[in-house]
Structures are given as C-alpha cells and as structure tokens.
Write a protein that binds this DNA or RNA. Structure first.
Length: 725
DNA sequence: AGAGCCATTGTTTTT
DNA sequence: CAATGGCTCT
C-alpha cells in the first residue's frame, strides 16, 4: 500500500509519532512543531495501515475551532467524509452522549444547556432564595466553587465541610443548585462532563459499548485537561489505545482547573517510555525561539524540551518603553503602518495583551488612523441579552420546566407581571419543589390573584402555549421569526431609538438568519431541529472567523492567541502587576503560569516580535507608575533591541485638552536645561529615569521622576541636579 | 415601568 | 474609568 503521502511530509520525530505501534503514546509537541499535523496523519495512518474503521476512532479537542480544523484536515487527507468517526470537543461529545442516553443519565429528554451567564443568574437566585448575605456569598464566588467541585468530580453529597460553617453553607448552596437544575432539566458546562462520566461509571453496559467501539482515543492539548476530563478519557478508553498530544510549557489554564500534571500521570499510567518529543519548530525565527527558550527555562519542573529551528536567526526582538499606554498604542500603530508600507498586510499583525480592557486604547488609536482591526473574544453573538431573550422563549417551548428561561422572559418584554407576582411564583415553586411553570399554573387556578395579575399571568401562559402550538408546524427559521414577533420582543427593542436599541433589533433579525443557515448535525440524531439549534447556540457561541479576503489587524488576549500564528506579533503591557498579573505575583505556581503565557505569546510570532510596556498607565481611572515586567529582564540582551522612547508624548494634550488644567510641556531649569514630560534624565544617586509630572515654579518647582531602579520619586528641582540622559 | 442617582467592583476563558 | 446593581422617585 502506498502510504507516502502520509509519512513523506514528516520529519523523523513526527514520523516516529505517527507510525508508532505501541498501545499508548505521549507526544510532547512544542509550539509550532506540527502537532495538529501529527494528529491528523496519525489518524490517516491508522485508517490506511492498521485498517482501523473510522467508526472506532474518537478524537477530542478543547475548542470548537480546533475540532473544526481537525475535521477539515482529516477529510482533506483521506479525501472523504469522517463516516462514523467522532471528532469534537469534550463538551460536544459529552453532550452527544447525554442526548443519546438521557434516560440513563436521569435527565428529561428536552434538557437544556446553561451557559455561564445562565448559571450565574441561577446561582444568584438561589443565594437570594436562601437569604444569604451576597457580600459574603458572592454569586460569582459560589459559581466558581460549584464549577471547581464539578471539575474535580465532586457532587455536593461527596463534600465534607470539616466543621467549617462557611464551607458547610457553600456545600448547601451547591446542593440547592443541583436540585434546582435537576428539577428544571438544566445542565451546565461542567455538568455535561460530570453527568456523562457518571453515566459511564454507573451503567456498565453503556460503558462497555463505547469502550468496545472506540479502540482508538486521541486527545489534543492534553495539558489543559482537568481532573474530571482525565478520568473521563481513562474510563472511555478502557483497554483501547490512547494517543495524547500536549505541551507542558503551554499550560495556561491552571486557574480553571487544568492540571499539567496530567501529562506526567498519563506517562506513568499509560505509556511509560513511549514518548516522542517534537522539538523542531517551523514557525519562528531563531532569535524569537532563542528568546522564548530562555524565558521558559526560568520555570521549574518542566518535562524538558528545547525548540530549535533550521531557519534564519531573523531580526532581533524590539523592546519599547512607552511613556504611557497611549504612547504605546501610537508606537504599535506606527510599526504596523511601516510594516504595511514595506509591502505586508494588516492581517499579518496581531496585538496581544493580558486582559481585555487593554484593547480599548489600541482600538481608539487604530480607528483614528483609519486602520481596520478586529477584536477577538468579547461579547459573542449568542451571549447578547436580546438573543438570549429570544432563545429563552424557544427554550420554554422545548421544556416548560426550564426555570432559567422562565425567569428570563416572564416579564420581558414587560407585560405587567411585577416583582411581587414573580416572587410569589418563586415561593410556591420552592415550597413545593416544583417548577416555576407548575407553580404558575397552580397559582392561576387557586383564585388568589387580583384580576389584573391573573390576567397578566394567564396572558404569559397562553403566549407560551400559543407559540408552541403554532410554531410547531414551521421550519426552524420561521419558528424563530414567529417567536420574535409574537413575543413582541422585536417590537420592544424597536421602540428604543438609541443606537443600542437599533443594534439589538438588528441582532434579533440576524437570529432568524442564523436559524436559516443552521444545519442540524447528523450527530444530533432524533433531536428536533429546534432542540439541536438551542444546543448549538449554547455550545458554540458563534464567533465568525476571518475570511481570506479580510485585511485587518487582529487584537486578542494572550490566552485566545494560543494555537494561532502571525508574521508580526506585538506583546503589550509587559508591566509588573499587569503581566505578570497582580494576583499572581506572590505565588510561584501562578507566576510560572504567567511565564508560560508569555512564552505562548512569543512563540506566536513568525518573523518579527515586538514587546512593549508603559511607564505610566491609567488603571481603573487612576494613574499608576509601572515597572517593566520581569519577563523582559529574563530575555537575554543578545536577542533584544531596545528602542529609546520618544520624549514628548503627554496624555493631557492628546486626550482631553479642555478638561485638564493647562499643562506646560516643558520645565525651564536654572541652568537653562529644558526638560519635558517623558524625558529621560540622569540622577547622581538614583540613576536613569523618566519625568512623569511636575508642579510649582522657580526654586520650589518639583518634578516626579520614575527611576528604573528606585521607582518613582518627587524631587525638588533646585537640589536634584538632574542631567539629560 | 422607567429614569436617574449612588455605591461597588473590577484577571485570564472555553465550553 | 467603566459597567453593574440596587435604590428612589416620578
């Protein structure tokens, strides 16, 4: 058989991985070393050489994007459809299992998926329902707690407070949340995994079926698996063969339960010596790799791996110390302009930052320069309030028990059902352990209500019944359209003439389009089209991808850049407290994760990497004096080219000329030395620094200087004896 | 029901 | 500096 197309494009290490004959394999794949290629070729190899049926293969990824890419590349490689192969995300596959075995998993057939926003609201209602102090039991914290427990595989009933009253209360909230979800037929993201894990664990005949079927289990980004996912894989694989790809140096999700140690566990438990390292990098220049290697070598307990490249050393990494964040943005913009002038395109540039809020300054500067850009992450289509309203109506049609949807639309748009009525319904539901829908029906028939409330509430009940009765006859897009109209949601948002209101109206119209182009996946079996659409909306938040013809600069967090690559990469805001993030500074484990995050960012760059930080930055409205990130110091000088700051940028002049007191941009000193904001100066004792601010005149004039070594200080000019640097 | 005001609170993110 | 939430007042 001719397998040359499978193995010829591979280097030795890749080939060793793809053609391995051992039962289990661990592939430590460095950044840019061809990890997806190895997975795809491995599958092609199994099919072609080992004669494995596609039916016997399951491949698991973390993101929909990665799953889609893998599917596409497999189909390209084998020149046909996946025919029975399971390729999907952990959550997607778990969902599929639960849909097939809903009864065995103790779920109603029409169970719905809660996204994190839904989950947050539900937790909040439960905390309130239990009359707990929200300052102490902040819904956000409780939500974290619940998800953490589920990620570790714990039910409320497994947990022991150890006598701690706070802990005890948390467990009780968790329990109440579990019960509320169970009653309403709701499943959050972590629950998808936990339920399907328990399904395997408790129903041997089902487990056996899948174990027999999936003789080959492949997992991508294994360093991102949490405890529950590890157990899930282990259970599913049974005696089958497990092929795992990961990179301990790119583990950046520890804060949400991912366990890098799972790589070592896997090695110990499954594959022993059957380990291949992919260390040849095909992406970045020698200097970029050298710098990244040097940085990551500061971490302890690594599994060991050094990337190398056969290519050129390329250019040095530029480091720019900006005066403030606006200056930083202008610098980035200028370099992008230059890049494009040199004959390259905008879409080759990526601006990376630690947290989403940092995108704003870049956006403003890019807009005013007329440069097209796109921000990834942020609010997604299916997360928008108006879209969730519409989806909630659709969910009510599928499942009357869905309390989460019920709460959302009972009075949206307003129909005269006030807080008092809703509170009454909630109380009845809680008191009798029934759903809010049932509580509503019983309240209506009790005859306790005033005529006005009775009317309003029965209006709602009739509306939902009517939606279902009529919409049921339509195809999906018509159903959506009908619901948006009949619920008067569209009318409600149309009335709002502000820009926001209009865009909401348009989004609702767009939802109909989304329904039109939606195609029910074959995997979804006998689910209704609507049920399938709702799951899709929850599981795949619908980030549209850039097309080849779009040409815009890409802005995103370092986290969402993982897995991507760009010819020109900016890593911005490299400041202590920002990156590494302030909450990681006093904990070495977290600090190492920040360092890996920086490593991930650096290794995104193909040809040119530019790093920057600001000496002053406005955070939460107030000025802060920033110290350069330790990560800059950790990169050896021979890889770097430090760019001197330009010494005249001042925020007051550029941002809000009228709102500030008039600012002199220069200070005249007695020796006729002229200093300006942002200017570098030299002090005998404190060394070099940058002028940040000044006040007073003549002999009492004082300047604030941010010294590289000593931090920021106020000095009386007459005594300071500063020299220009 | 909706506008307007004050206090609070701010990672990272996918599913 | 925001966005958000709770509150009061109309």
């Amino acid at each position: 058989m001719d397998v040359s197309h499978i193995i010829d494009p591979l280097n030795d290490a890749q080939r060793q991985a793809v053609t391995a004959s051992s039962d289990h394999m661990l592939i430590l794949a460095g950044a840019g070393s061809g990890k997806t290629r190895v997975l795809v070729h491995r599958i092609a190899w199994l099919l072609a050489v080992d004669n494995v049926s596609p039916h016997n293969i399951v491949a698991v990824t973390f993101t929909n994007k990665a799953a889609a890419e893998m599917r596409g590349r497999i189909e390209g490689m084998i020149n046909g459809s996946l025919s029975g192969m399971w390729v999907g995300t952990f959550h997607g596959l778990a969902h599929r299992l639960l849909r097939s075995h809903w009864a065995d998993a103790d779920l109603p057939q029409g169970f719905q998926i809660l996204d994190s926003d839904d989950q947050f609201r539900l937790v909040k209602r439960i905390v309130r329902g239990m009359e707990l102090d929200e300052a102490l039991w902040s819904p956000r914290k409780v939500q974290w707690y619940i998800n953490d427990q589920k990620d570790e595989g714990y039910r409320a009933s497994h947990l022991d407070s150890g006598g701690d009253p706070y802990q005890k209360q948390l467990i009780q909230v968790y329990l109440a949340y579990e019960q509320a979800c169970q009653r309403a037929g709701l499943v959050d993201f972590a629950e998808l995994l936990l339920r399907s894990f328990e399904l395997f664990r408790d129903k041997p005949e089902i487990l056996q079926h899948y174990q027999q079927r999936f003789a080959h289990v492949l997992v991508d980004e294994f360093q991102d698996t949490n405890t529950l996912q590890y157990s899930w894989i282990k259970l599913l694989a049974g005696a089958g063969k497990v092929f795992v790809v990961g990179d301990d140096d790119q583990s950046i999700y520890g804060w949400r339960g991912a366990k890098v140690e799972n790589l070592q566990h896997f090695q110990k438990e499954f594959c022993g010596e059957n380990l291949v390292r992919l260390e040849q990098n095909y992406r970045s220049t020698g200097n970029i790799l050298g710098a990244a290697n040097a940085l990551i070598s500061g971490n302890t307990g690594r599994m060991g791996k050094e990337l190398w490249s056969a290519g050129d050393k390329g250019e040095l990494i530029d480091i720019y110390a900006a005066f403030n964040e606006l200056d930083e943005a202008h610098f980035v913009k200028e370099r992008i302009k230059q890049w494009v002038t040199d004959g390259n395109s905008h879409k080759e540039c990526a601006i990376l930052y630690r947290s989403n809020a940092q995108s704003r300054v870049f956006e403003e500067v890019l807009i005013s320069s007329g440069i097209a850009y796109r921000v990834y992450g942020g609010l997604r289509f299916f997360d928008r309030a108006e879209i969730k309203d519409a989806l909630a109506y659709l969910r009510m049609m599928e499942n009357r028990s869905d309390d989460s949807a019920f709460e959302r639309v009972i009075n949206t748009p307003t129909r005269g059902i006030g807080d008092r009525s809703v509170a009454m319904i909630r109380d009845i539901a809680r008191g009798n352990s029934i759903t809010m829908w049932e509580a509503t029906l019983s309240l209506l028939s009790s005859g306790q209500l005033a005529a006005r409330a009775q009317n309003a509430i029965s209006g709602f009940v009739n509306l939902i019944d009517q939606l279902q009765a009529f919409a049921g006859n339509f195809v999906l897009a018509e159903q959506v359209d009908y619901v948006v109209e009949t619920s008067r949601l569209i009318e409600h948002y149309s009335k709002d003439k502000s820009e926001k209101g209009q865009s909401r109206k348009e989004n609702l119209e767009e939802l109909t389009n989304a329904a039109k182009i939606f195609q029910k996946p074959q995997d979804d079996g006998d689910m209704t089209e609507l049920a399938s659409f709702l799951s899709h909306a929850a599981l795949e938040a619908g980030e549209s991808q850039a097309t080849d013809t779009d040409d815009f600069v890409q802005l995103m967090t370092l986290h969402s850049a993982k897995g991507l690559e760009f010819p020109l990469v900016f890593i911005t805001g490299l400041e202590e407290g920002l990156f590494p993030h302030g909450r990681s500074l006093d904990d070495n484990v977290q600090l190492e994760e920040e360092r890996r995050l920086c490593y991930v960012g650096m290794t995104r760059a193909e040809r040119k990497l530019i790093m920057s930080y600001a000496e002053t930055r406005r955070i939460h409205g107030s000025e802060n004096y920033q110290k350069a990130s330790r990560f800059i110091r950790e990169v050896p000088d021979d890889f770097m080219n430090e760019i001197r700051p330009r010494a005249q940028v001042s925020r007051p002049a550029m941002q809000r000329p009228q709102a500030r007191k008039p600012v002199r941009s220069t200070i005249l000193m007695q020796d006729d030395f002229e200093f300006s904001l942002g200017q570098r100066v030299q002090h005998k004792k404190f060394g070099e620094g940058v002028v940040l601010n000044f006040e007073g005149e003549g002999t009492s004039a004082r300047v604030q200087v941010n010294f590289e070594r000593e931090g920021s200080k106020w000095l009386v000019l007459a005594y300071a004896n500063l020299q220009g640097a």
